[in-house]
Design a protein around this nucleic acid. Structure first.
Lengths: 250, 250
DNA sequence: CCAACTGGTCTGGTTACTAGACCACTAGAC
DNA sequence: GTCTAGTGGTCTAGTAACCAGACCAGTTGG
């Protein structure tokens, strides 16, 4: 009886294995870069030989992954010319699954609500537990953001490092990773959102408020600072989505 | 410059691909069943032919996965006899990674704290949003648990269905999945914990309190009921760990 | 116009997996 | 103790995915 339960149930570990090939995984990674805005429409990818070396796979595998993407109209591959991103509509071939398997399109509101909750808790712990060396690292990361205001890719890299460092300072690995996951989920649309005039400057200002609250060990100020920042992100993301939908309906 | 950032950074999507074979994935799934307590020391696995058919892979692949496990001393494979579980110490070959990749051994306290936080939020929403048909389903799941008090595997299956149904009733997919992830993380040790005299009866009593709070739409009672239940789980899990460590040091 | 770099194609090889057949051992029923 | 059904063990032939390298053809920028 017990064995039948193992074999027959839905979502049991013994259900069919759907294996992903290396080329599928590589294609997924490219799609993730595009969906998250690190790669923009118009950007050229590194060469196939360079990608193969960096990712530790054969050039054939890279070419197979690019074939998947070009077939879906996401990239353009032309002999002799650099491969270019031509669409950021990656459909299901997007961000890797965060929760136990499948990619799920969560409602933006759900992610927003979840992130507010987790970050409030992170704030209350971080204000008590943050270490001096972490404060120094966070300050450097804000400096790096200021140095990158003209370079959206570098800014996003520093932005992510900033958020994960703040999250980790709470001292609870589960909360830190939950917060990071929710932050990453919202990378969707971020590249376009920070393209708005003044967006990067506003983010940096918010980050300095967060740093000041951490330095002061002020849990209420930190929770408020993170909350204000997240609401601003939420609003700017919705603005981007509204613009996208308006253009789509024209 | 932007391209160099893509290629050079740590933890970027373009870092080396470490591909897992089908047999590795199958081995991982078996290990997950053992680690989570669904399979116990002494249990026999289904036959290789049956597993191959159920999982949609070849018998060779199943054999390769079992070879991995037998090499690690987890299962015993003897010609003509059924393959048996001989150890539940699966080491790193355990529960699949929950957050973006690697298996991480979170401190039990961190998981406990995270779960308390998420479940409180779930409770406040679920009390308002739970649907009548969901209440009916939850009651049936408690009935199923009562019918399974003598069968730990069936009890755990119904237990998991109970928790995920309660979590989903909050109406926020992100919170629901976060709670489910944290619940699943604690399946480690659960089989042994419910083996204690009266443990299943106590769980069922707690579940009835939770159902009553949902039926009454009482957010405070629901938050309290989930909190009391989680603390009991935490305490019983720690007791199991203490016993395991005491035996290991003898 | 030319050179460097790019993508495109091809060859020979290895590895992982598949499907099936057949052999040898175990466990339970009688 | 014997027998049978079911089990694991071994082998063969085949396919698919990936790898490394060589060479060809197109693009781009100086």
């Amino acid at each position: 009886m017990g064995e039948n339960a193992l074999l027959a149930g839905q979502n049991t570990p013994l259900e069919k294995v759907t294996h992903r090939s290396v080329k599928d995984e590589v294609a997924e990674r490219f799609a993730t870069l595009i969906a998250s805005g690190v790669l923009n429409v118009g950007d050229a990818l590194p060469s196939e030989r360079e990608l193969a070396s960096t990712m530790g796979v054969s050039r054939e595998t890279i070419r197979g992954a690019l074939l998947i993407l070009s077939t879906k109209g996401i990239v353009s591959v032309v002999q002799g010319a650099r491969t270019k991103v031509v669409s950021d509509d990656v459909g299901g071939l997007g961000l890797s699954a965060f929760f136990n398997g499948l990619v799920t399109e969560y409602a933006l509101e759900d992610v927003h609500e979840g992130r507010l909750m987790v970050e409030e808790r992170v704030a209350r712990l971080a204000a008590q537990r943050v270490k001096p060396e972490t404060l120094a690292a966070i300050e450097k990361l804000i400096d790096a953001q200021e140095a990158a205001t003209g370079d959206p890719v570098r800014f996003l890299i520093a932005d992510r490092a900033f958020h994960t460092t703040v999250y980790q300072s709470c001292g609870n690995a589960v909360l830190s990773d939950l917060a990071t996951t929710l932050y990453s989920y919202q990378l969707d649309h971020r590249r376009r959102a920070i393209g708005a005039p003044g967006a990067i400057a506003q983010s940096i200002a918010d980050h300095r408020v967060i740093l000041a609250a951490l330095q002061a060990g002020d849990a209420d100020a930190l929770a408020n600072g993170l909350g204000v920042h997240e609401r601003r992100i939420y609003d700017s993301t919705r603005a981007v989505l509204a613009t996208t939908q308006k253009k789509a309906s024209e």
